[in-house]
Amino acid sequence: MRWLRRLLGGGRVQLDAERQQALLQDVQSRYGAHAQIRFPEQVEAVTGMLNGDDGLVVAARIVSQVADEAHADLQAQAHEIHRRTGRRLLVHRQNYRPLWMEAGPALRWPLTALPCGFHPYAQVAAAVAVVGSQAPRLDRVTDPNPLVTRVFEVLDLTTSGWEYGRVRIDTDAAALADRLISTAGQILAAMDDPPRLPPPVRELMRRNNTLDVHDPTNSRAVGGINLGAKMREHLLA
């Protein structure tokens, strides 16, 4: 694997684990739902903090941690539903859409209530933006294959929540989806042997409908997002 050859060979970079931990804790404590500034300003601030290779490592860690915790949360929800009702739900990380289609009203969208406290429209959106902007350097600090898989998982959770989980599509939600799609495309473009697109992406790419995007503070529609068109633009090389 090219990323491993780079780490072991001449492409190796100097990383500072203590700085990474300090960055992670700073991003975790200062930003999120409790912060007194709007999400776009939080994204800008966190993006500025996560500079250099250490910032890139932290950004990749945030994306992966959010995907892992969201999966664990959905597994716990499925277990609780089975305990209460006897209904068995299958939780597949490769494709969350069947789960949400079957049980959407009974599920809680996990991305806003994770143990890590990272908010999808603040720290996660910023981390995704950093990973995308530095995609050509990813293989110097981590394996891009599992990372792009986690990016697609968060995208799947985002769009499934819109369609089946009663998650409101506002400008912050649309901005997250847009960043996830473009970042996935940037990572794939930087890889020697990119993986196949996952099933939920292939399904949505066949669509061409536009969803209303609302103002975060009221019910007024202020624009639209065509997921299929965006995915075709960024993910079909």
Rank of each mutant, 00 (worst) to 15 (best):
Met1Ser: 09
Arg2Ala: 08
Arg6Met: 14
Val13Leu: 10
Gln14Asp: 12
Leu15Asn: 01
Gln25Leu: 09
Ser29Ile: 06
Gly32Lys: 03
Gly52His: 02
Asp54Gly: 00
Val58Gln: 10
Ser64Tyr: 08
Gln65Ile: 15
Asp68Trp: 11
His71Cys: 03
Ala72Arg: 07
Ala76Arg: 14
Ile81Gln: 05
His82Thr: 08
Thr85Ala: 04
Arg88Ala: 13
Arg88Val: 15
Pro98Gly: 03
Glu102Phe: 04
Glu102Cys: 00
Gly104Glu: 06
Pro105Arg: 02
Ala106Pro: 00
Arg108Cys: 08
Cys116Ala: 12
Phe118Lys: 00
His119Phe: 12
Val124Ser: 00
Ala129Leu: 13
Gly132Pro: 07
Ser133Cys: 05
Arg137His: 12
Leu138Glu: 15
Asp139Ile: 01
Pro144Asn: 03
Pro146Lys: 03
Leu147Pro: 04
Val148Gln: 01
Phe152Ser: 05
Glu153His: 06
Leu155Lys: 01
Ser160Ile: 07
Ser160Glu: 11
Asp170Tyr: 04
Ala184Tyr: 09
Ile187Tyr: 06
Arg196Gly: 10
Arg202His: 07
Glu203Tyr: 11
Met205Leu: 06
Arg207Gln: 15
Asn209His: 07
Asn209Lys: 01
His214Pro: 00
Pro216Asn: 06
Ala221Trp: 08
Gly228Arg: 09
Lys230Phe: 09
Glu233Lys: 07
His234Tyr: 15
Leu235Cys: 02
Leu236Trp: 12
